[in-house]
């Protein structure tokens, strides 16, 4: 068989091989058979050395044309097949995107942690450090140093759990104030969150709850500064339009003492169920630090003044999230907990 015939034969072989090729995989085999290193076209090329030198250029041309023709043919076929195959694959792999997601359930912080962190970040920005005192206190830190001597009627304001003659569960985070002032000289700006305990148990009282106490002692601190700081707090926690109102009150460790109300963020002050029709909601107690308290901690009250404020974290949480029963906070019911995504 001369070369021309051989070329023709190969062409025919290729035509018939590709006639019933169905997949890109079998096409690949055909490619190898004809175009591979040991493929039929390559072996023809190798035979060139047996051809007389004068015929070689024309033969070379023919063979190159054959190779080119084959490559083009098979490449075209391949891209067509690949397209079909891809379409089939897509069709097979198509999913129902409306099927529910595989869940990575979220966890949740306790509402107290959320409020605590929110408060801390507000006051941290104003330069407050965080101080956490012990929950078990002695009479001195919880009462006496806070200007509440033994016979003081204010002790009745808070029913105290006693653990020993002189040891008790702190009734207020204010106890921590003293520990700070004993060890640190002004300027003082601290925030003291923590658990406190009172012998009280009903729908609005829990024997354990959390407070956040703030204390500022420095030169020239005024009641207006207290008001300014609380305005800022109220806006950040309850909303830009919320206002605060001070009204006289009494705490042994502050003088003057005030009760602080915020304008009702639910009704905007018109009066609703949340604010019991008054337009105001009581949120915290505050006042200018009593001179005796400063003195007791070795701070000269003629040089320094200060203010303190204390709020119930649960109360803020209940107001902010609309929780109507304090008990829910301590029950650990997952249907309650899972709602508190930050």
């Amino acid at each position: 068989m001369d070369v021309n015939e051989k070329i023709k034969h190969i062409e025919q072989q290729i035509e018939s091989a590709v006639a019933d090729v169905k997949s890109s995989k079998s096409l690949q085999e055909i490619k190898m058979r004809f175009l591979g290193k040991t493929g039929e076209i390559s072996s023809l090329m190798k035979n060139m050395r047996d051809v007389p030198p004068e015929q070689r250029p024309s033969l070379g041309k023919l063979l190159n044309a054959l190779r080119q023709w084959t490559e083009e043919k098979l490449d075209n076929l391949e891209s067509g097949l690949k397209e079909i195959e891809l379409k089939r694959k897509y069709a097979e792999e198509k999913i129902d995107v409306t099927v529910p997601a595989r869940d990575f359930p979220d966890g949740a912080y306790h509402p107290n942690t959320l409020i605590r962190n929110e408060l801390v970040s507000i006051f941290a920005g104003m330069g407050f450090e965080i101080f956490e005192g012990p929950e078990i206190e002695n009479d001195y830190y919880n009462f006496t140093a806070l200007n509440t001597p033994k016979d003081h009627p204010a002790r009745d304001m808070q029913d105290t759990f006693y653990l020993a003659e002189d040891l008790l569960l702190r009734t207020q985070t204010s106890a921590g104030q003293i520990r700070v002032m004993e060890n640190k000289k002004p300027p003082i700006k601290i925030l003291s969150p923590g658990k406190v305990y009172r012998s009280d148990d009903d729908a609005t009282h829990s024997p354990m709850f959390s407070q956040m106490e703030g204390l500022v002692v420095d030169r020239g601190i005024t009641l207006c500064d207290l008001k300014g700081m609380l305005d800022e707090f109220a806006k950040k926690i309850f909303g830009e339009n919320v206002k605060t109102r001070l009204r006289p009150s009494y705490f042994p460790f502050t003088e003057p003492s005030v009760e602080v109300d915020v304008s009702c963020f639910e009704c905007g002050g018109k009066g609703c169920r949340l604010c019991k029709g008054t337009g105001w909601i009581e949120v915290l107690g505050a006042g200018m630090v009593n001179r005796r308290v400063l003195e007791g901690c070795g701070i000269n009250p003629d040089e320094y003044t200060g203010f303190a404020f204390g709020m119930g974290i649960e109360r803020i949480a209940m107001l902010k999230y609309g929780i109507n029963n304090m008990k829910l906070l301590f029950e650990g019911d997952t249907r309650f907990l899972k709602q508190f995504k930050d």
Partner: peptide, 21 residues
Amino acid sequence: GYEHIKGTFLPSASITNGGFN
């Protein structure tokens, strides 16, 4: 009257560095 108390923002206080420890 407490309504006379207008908020100010610690104009005389020293700068302190706050935050979590």
